[in-house]
Design a protein around this nucleic acid. Sequence first.
DNA 1: CCAGATATTTGCGTGGCGCGCATATTTGCG
DNA 2: CGCAAATATGCGCGCCACGCAAATATCTGG
Lengths: 206, 206
Amino acid sequence: MTGLRERKKAETRAALGWAAIHLTVQRGFDNVRVEDIAEAAGVSPRTFNNYFSSKAEAIASRHLDRSLRTAAALRERPADEPLWAALTQAALEQFTRGPEVEAMPSPPHDQWAAGVRTMLAEPALQGERLRAVAIAEAELAAAVAERTGTDLATDMYPRLVAAAASAAVAVAMQHYLDSADPPAPIERLITDAFTQVAAGLPAPPR
Amino acid sequence: MTGLRERKKAETRAALGWAAIHLTVQRGFDNVRVEDIAEAAGVSPRTFNNYFSSKAEAIASRHLDRSLRTAAALRERPADEPLWAALTQAALEQFTRGPEVEAMPSPPHDQWAAGVRTMLAEPALQGERLRAVAIAEAELAAAVAERTGTDLATDMYPRLVAAAASAAVAVAMQHYLDSADPPAPIERLITDAFTQVAAGLPAPPR
DNA sequence: CCAGATATTTGCGTGGCGCGCATATTTGCG
DNA sequence: CGCAAATATGCGCGCCACGCAAATATCTGG
C-alpha cells in the first residue's frame, strides 16, 4: 500500500524538516529563510508551505514524526513481548540515520551540539516542540492502551506510560547533547533511560 | 515599590491580552488583526509588539500571568498554612474579574464558551499555551520547593506538586467551558479540583 | 499500455506580521 | 523644577503564510 506517491511525500517532508534543522543549527533561527530551506530540500518555496505552516513546525516535525513512528512501531512488535522491551525497541528503531542526514555534511559534535542548544532555546520553537510532544504522547498512549488492553477513557495507566516513555527519550537526547566529543552513543542512552524507567526509577546506590 | 509606571505597564499588558482573547473569541483567530487589538486596548499598533511578539503570545499571556501570580501569591500565604490549602487559595485569588474584563461587554455564556473552544483548537495557539504552562509550572515548582524546604535539583516532589496544581486549574477551566448556561461557578470548580488532587485522587464511590 | 481521474508542485499576488530605528512623550528623582 | 531614564509612537523593510489557477506527476481501470 506504500506507493511511490506516499514515499516521495515522506521523503520530501523529511528532507524539508532536516534541512530546516540543519540550517538553523548552523546559522541561527532567523538567519534562515524559508527560501533557503526549500532550496536545500530541492523544492520550490511554495511547496514548503504545502508541508508546514511555519519554520518552527518544520523543525519540530522531525521529533514529531519520530515519535509517531515509535507509536506505529510499537503496534508492530510481537504481542507477547513485555511492554517496556517493546517500547525500547520501538524507540530505538527510529534513531537510525536516514539518507537525508547522510547527504548533508554536518559539523563536528561539539559545534553541532552547541547549535542545537541555541536552537532549542529559541522561544518561537519551544511552543511548537511542546505541541508536537503532546500530539505524539496522545498517539503513543493510544497504542499502549491497545497493547495492554487498558482503557484510555478510564485508566491513567496508558497516558502515564506514554509520558514516561516520552520523557525517557527526551532525557536521553538532552544527555546526548550535553555529552562531550566523542558523544555517548544515543542507542545506549535510550536503552539506559528506558531500563531505568521500567525499573520504577529506584534511588541510585550512593 | 509599585510605582505608576509599573502599574500602567501591567494594565496595558492585561488590556492587550484581554482584547486579544475577546476579539479572537468573537471573530476567530485570523479575522483579528494586531491593529484591532491595539485599538481595543487604546494603544498604537507598534506598542503591541513592545509587549508581545505575536498574537498567540498575547492570547496565552492571560493564562501565563495568572499562573505566575499564583506562584507569587503562594509565597505570600502564611507559612503555617497547609500546602494544599495555600495552593488552593493562591489559585482562587487569581480568578476575580479585573476592570479590563468588565469594561468590554461579553456575549452570553454558551456563545462565549463555544468561541473559546474554537480558539483553543487553533493550532497556532496550542504551542504558545503549552509554552506558557511550562514556564508557569517551573515558577510554581520553585515556590513550592521554597515553601516545603525541598530541593528542586534532587526532589521530584515540587515539580509533581506544580504539575498537579497546574492540571487542577486546567481541568477546572475546561469543565467550566463545558458547563451549560448558567455556568458552574469557577471558584467552586477550582476548589473541588484542588480538593480531589490533595486527597490523592481516590477512586470515586460507585 | 493508454487515457482519464486524482494528487502534487509551482508561480504569482496579496495582506499582514515582526521588529529595528529614530523621535516624541511620559514618569521618576533629586 | 529640570534632567535622566523609561516608554509610546511613526515609519519602513524584509519576510511569511496562504489562496488561486495552471502545469506536472502519479494512479487506476480497461
